[in-house]
Simulated assay, not measured.
Amino acid sequence: MAFFAQARARRRDESELGTGLWRRAHDRYIRGLDRFHQILEQGQDEAASRLVPAADLLADALPRIRAVCVEAHRAAPGVDLNVPGGRFTEVHRRLSRAGNALAASAEAAAMTLLAPGGADDGAAGVENVERRARQVLEEIAAAEAALRDVRSQ
């Protein structure tokens, strides 16, 4: 049964996101989010629990990433693996930065949990993860704004 659900989801993703640039941006965010949660699962329960609010913020942003990627694919469906010139450059740049910031958030979470004493030892590590998570959200907002700009042209 799970096989058929996965096949339907894959077909839906190909239909809504294509197989090129916008799909890659979406999938990269998902991989970063998965990595962040894997890091939390490997941490000690008490230490990792201090990072859960940041993880929740990042997970709650996934529908926003998907919406930007779906709309960008509708507007520029022929884009395969090359960054589109002109109007969509800023949208792609911001999606890439969101993915990079998410990877940096996951790395900061790992470093926080691996530090002596973990997240319980110092608030600086938790604050670093939260700051990086806010950067992800800022890049997503910038991607949404760039897409609005493209629509208004």
Rank of each mutant, 00 (worst) to 15 (best):
L102E: 13
L113S: 09
H92P: 09
A142V: 02
V136K: 00
T19L: 12
A59N: 11
A54W: 06
D80K: 15
F4L: 14
N100W: 08
L51P: 03
G18M: 03
I39V: 11
S152F: 01
A5N: 11
L95W: 03
A67L: 09
D80E: 14
V136N: 07
A145K: 11
I30M: 08
A133H: 08
A54K: 05
A7S: 09
M111H: 13
R131Y: 07
A145T: 12
A72E: 01
A101Y: 02
R87I: 08
L137Y: 07
G20Q: 02
G32P: 06
V52A: 07
A115H: 07
A55T: 03
D13I: 12
E14W: 10
R11L: 13
D60Y: 09
E138I: 02
R28I: 00
A108F: 06
E127S: 05
A72C: 06
L81S: 06
A9F: 12
A76E: 14
A61E: 01
R134E: 12
W22I: 08
V70L: 10
I30H: 13
G85P: 05
A7T: 07
D27H: 06
L114R: 06
R151N: 08
G122T: 13
A104E: 06
L21I: 11
I39E: 05
E127I: 02
G78W: 01
R134P: 01
E127N: 03
F3E: 15
A110S: 07
T19D: 06
L137E: 14
Q6L: 15
A98G: 07
D45E: 13
R97H: 10
A25I: 03
R97L: 15
R148Y: 04
R74Y: 07
A61I: 03
A141G: 06
A146H: 05
A104G: 06
A109W: 00
D27I: 09
V52E: 12
H37W: 04
E107W: 06
D45N: 07
